[in-house]
Write a protein that binds this DNA or RNA. Structure first.
Length: 821
DNA sequence: ACGTCCCGCCAGGGG
DNA sequence: CCCCTGGCGGGACGT
């Protein structure tokens, strides 16, 4: 079972194999004057890339072969282009970034399937890994430790780990969230922020001990490593380790995300909490620095896992580095005993915890509804159809071209990408016809649970929730208006200027219907837009995004020819790599350029993409799809933003009224679609025969002005879906206070229950869906259900709305704080 | 100048 | 005692 050693070019010494000189503690300077027998020739570099990209997933045998795939070569070449051109080797020297932990982690992850089947159970031999990846052992430990904290791997023995993949992720996250809640992280965070706010200058004049002691120590000052039953089989000996710092830290870090409402955590806060908690020791600077360094390490691997993404929180003082959770939304705590996490002290009795192992493998549907689905053909069919729907949604009109400036004309309803993917889309479209049964089925699955629950739990406030959903969109900010009775929300897109008004706290502020002119476009429709929104360097992204598309297109034919899943995987990996690199460059991967084909012939949307992290797109999926997918985000437009009356008042949002926008129906996109009269937007409404997604879509379109208010677009192969709700939106709100801050809106229109995603993922190991729990909202009104950040947001400062790095809207009160209220 | 974070020393401890 | 682990922090790199 051991992973065969790759015939690595062991002959080439790695850069890291330092010269025997003496230079004890300092980081060796970059070898500009490269040593003669330099291993880092362009070729070697290429090799490395290829090897990294090669999927060693199912059949390792084919690895070599595959590595020759032109696609990869292209990729590699692309990456190396500059190097090749540059005569000097220095150029080809791996830059610091090329050696980043994040990249390394990517390579590492590429070696194993996200969702390994029992048969694929792979063992990780550190020696092999280090050799193949050309890295120092030490680095691997960093990665493995974090993975271990998520139970993606388990240590077996020295040098040996087992790869679990993401199977355990849902449980782990749930467990972590639970522990995080128990640990009162929310309060701690608040306290820290408060403190900062109080003496907002005075960097280190802190008597934070109080804080630490007050909260941290109260409960369990020492939080041990969180175990998951069934996953912790590590050698007992190993288990009794005290060195779990990185692992524990990683878990805590994750907890912070899971617990805080806007799932954004700044490094600073995280560091403080993690320090304060452990020991109330003096927070000397060095300690803080070290903590930060460690956090970066952890963050890098979490980023590689697409669980978080880097963003910046803009405050008065400037931008602070922070990370935003982009992973799956964690289900609300459920007392499913099976899922119960055991927090054990590092030491001991592991033997007992071994019990529920079943759990390891198949807890795809961890939450309450523990219906164990078997892959019954009918179900599969259903799922497929759902998938198709989703894809369609994702391929809804997008505007690959324009971003903010938007004029209606600039919105190509039919993304070129779609046209470029005839082979792919077509089949999907065909699968479109849903039988009444299926429809019914879907409804059953999605509405009752999602909607009912959402309404019940989500809106504690009896009063009709009115929500404001500041969009992060660079130019358009949607405001979501929940419908009083149906619970359906309406979204209004505001022009930035208007949005600004909204976001600012001006008492007199009024939300006004936006004139068509102000409507800049569908925010989500454009992938670039999305990127822009979410990223800090929107411009860069845009720039990068464009290029990728063509690339994807070119490769498409090739992909087609490749039938084996391996190839697909490989390819996607290569793309990932590529994207990764790009990301490094532009801080963000612009759009996932990778398209993955599966044997089944279905295009599997990336889970991550769905989550709204464009970065995720890069992950393994579709190249062109990424942009197509973006519409998904827009879909989230529809949603209920729970807000208490008081909150509303605070915001000063008087009466909204939705003005029908001009109809800009693009013949291409909607033309053929029959128009139905729409009476019920609320998908939750059982009586509604309409597919939730389509409702959402219609809704969106209407508000965007693509179709008249009264018109509805039926599920159309092309446009149909609006994703749903699974994509939460960012909205501003203040949890307890009157301040509006970044938050997420949960949509109550769910295309299908989160478990469907799980199910889908079970069907498609490589393109797993993270559980998206639409109604996962509990105490946090704006908890993001499935993920994403859609990018709607804008940040408003005194001087006006501005895009923030993650594209969230910040409504500062006095100071901007992203992480929580 | 600062944010990021690579690098590798070296201590702990298992085998 | 060797070597795996992994805490730790200097200081290099990137912007």
């Amino acid at each position: 079972l051991k992973t065969p050693l790759k015939p690595a070019a062991a002959s080439q010494p790695v850069l890291t194999e330092r010269q025997p000189d003496c230079q004890p503690l300092s980081t060796p300077p970059k070898p500009k004057d490269t040593p003669p027998a330099d291993p880092w020739t362009p070729t070697s570099n290429l090799k490395m890339l290829i090897s990294a990209a090669s999927p060693e997933i199912r059949s390792r045998e084919q690895r070599k072969q595959l590595s020759d795939s032109s696609a990869e070569v292209l990729q590699a070449k692309h990456c190396l282009q500059e190097h090749l051109l540059g005569d000097e080797y220095e150029k080809s020297q791996p830059s610091r970034k090329e050696k980043s932990l994040g990249l390394l982690c990517h390579k590492f992850l590429a070696r194993y399937p996200d969702y390994p089947s029992a048969a694929q159970k792979s063992y990780i031999c550190l020696d092999e890994v280090t050799e193949e990846l050309h890295v120092e052992r030490r680095r691997i430990y960093d990665i493995v430790n974090v993975l271990e904290s998520l139970h993606m791997v388990s240590r077996l023995a020295r040098n040996r780990y087992i790869w679990h993949g993401r199977h355990n992720l849902p449980q782990t996250l749930q467990a972590l969230k639970k522990v995080g809640e128990e640990n009162k992280y929310i309060q701690q965070i608040q306290m820290i922020k408060k403190r900062e706010y109080e003496h907002e200058f005075d960097p280190d004049g802190e008597r934070k001990e109080e804080m630490a002691s007050s909260l941290g120590s109260s409960e369990q000052s020492e939080m041990p490593f969180v175990e998951l039953p069934g996953v912790e089989f590590r050698a007992a000996s190993v288990n009794g380790r005290k060195y779990k710092s990185l692992r524990v830290m990683s878990q805590k870090f994750v907890m912070l995300f899971l617990v805080s409402t806007p799932q954004i955590v700044s490094l600073e806060v995280a560091a403080k909490i993690l320090i304060g908690e452990d020991q109330l020791e003096d927070l000397d600077k060095s300690k803080f620095k070290t903590k930060i360094r460690r956090l970066y390490d952890i963050a890098n691997v979490l980023s590689s896992l697409k669980l978080i993404k880097k963003v910046h929180v803009t405050e008065e003082r400037g931008r602070k580095p922070a990370f935003k959770w982009t992973g799956p939304e964690v289900l609300p705590n459920i007392q499913d005993t099976k899922l119960e996490a055991t927090t054990t002290t590092c030491s001991p009795p592991i033997s007992e915890s071994i019990p529920s192992k079943e759990h390891c493998s198949k807890n795809l549907f961890p939450s309450k509804g523990k219906q164990n689905f078997t892959r019954h053909s009918s179900l599969i069919k259903l799922v497929k159809s759902i998938e198709n729907d989703r894809r369609k949604i994702q391929s809804a009109p997008t505007s690959p071209v324009k971003i903010s400036t938007s004029t209606y004309q600039s919105l190509p309803v039919f993304p070129s990408t779609i046209a470029q993917l005839p082979a792919i889309t077509k089949p999907q479209l065909e699968g479109q016809s849903k039988t009444a049964e299926e429809m019914q089925m879907k409804r059953d699955l999605s509405s009752p649970e999602a909607v009912a629950k959402a309404e019940a739990s989500e809106q504690p406030a009896p009063s009709q929730p009115l929500g404001v959903c500041p969009a992060s969109h660079s130019s358009v900010s949607p405001v979501i208006l929940p419908h009083p009775h149906s619970g359906v929300s309406y979204a209004i897109y505001l022009h930035p200027s208007q949005a600004h008004t909204v976001t600012t706290y001006s008492p007199g502020f009024m939300l006004q219907p936006l004139p068509c002119a102000n409507v800049t476009g569908i925010k989500s429709s454009n992938s670039k837009v999305l990127n822009k929104i979410t990223t800090e360097e929107g411009d860069n992204q845009i720039a990068t995004a464009e290029p990728t598309k063509p690339l994807a297109a070119e490769e498409r034919p090739e992909m087609k020819s490749e039938t084996s899943s391996q190839r697909c995987l490989k390819r996607s990996q290569a793309l990932q790599e590529n994207n990764l690199i790009k990301r490094h460059k532009s801080d963000e991967e612009s759009l996932g350029t990778s398209l993955t084909f599966f044997p089944s012939g279905y295009l599997i949307p990336l889970t991550h993409c769905t989550h709204g992290n464009k970065a995720d797109c890069s992950n393994k999926e579709k190249a062109g799809m990424c942009s197509l997918q973006h519409p998904t985000y827009s879909s989230s437009v529809t949603g209920v933003i729970p807000m208490t009356a008081s909150e509303l008042k605070t915001v000063n949002i008087p009466a909204f009224h939705i003005t029908p926008l001009n109809i800009m129906l693009s013949p291409n996109s909607i033309a053929a679609a029959p128009v139905l009269s729409n009476s019920c937007l609320n998908s939750s409404n059982a009586s509604s025969a309409q597919n939730p997604s389509s409702s959402a879509l219609n809704f969106m379109l209407q508000h965007i002005g693509l179709i008249p208010a009264g018109v509805q677009v039926p599920a159309n192969p092309v446009l149909q879906h609006v994703p749903a709700s699974s994509q939460p939106e960012n909205i501003s709100h203040s949890s307890g206070n009157t301040n509006l801050q970044e938050g997420k809106v949960r949509t109550n229109i769910a295309p299908w229950p989160w478990w469907v995603d799980n199910f889908l993922s079970s069907l498609q190991p490589s393109a797993p869906k993270e559980p998206q729990e639409p109604q996962a909202v509990t105490e946090n009104f704006f908890r993001t259900p499935g993920g994403p950040n859609s990018g709607f947001s804008l940040s408003a400062n005194s001087d006006g709305p501005e895009r923030t790095s993650q594209g969230t809207l910040y409504i500062p009160q006095r100071k901007l704080e992203v992480s929580e209220d």
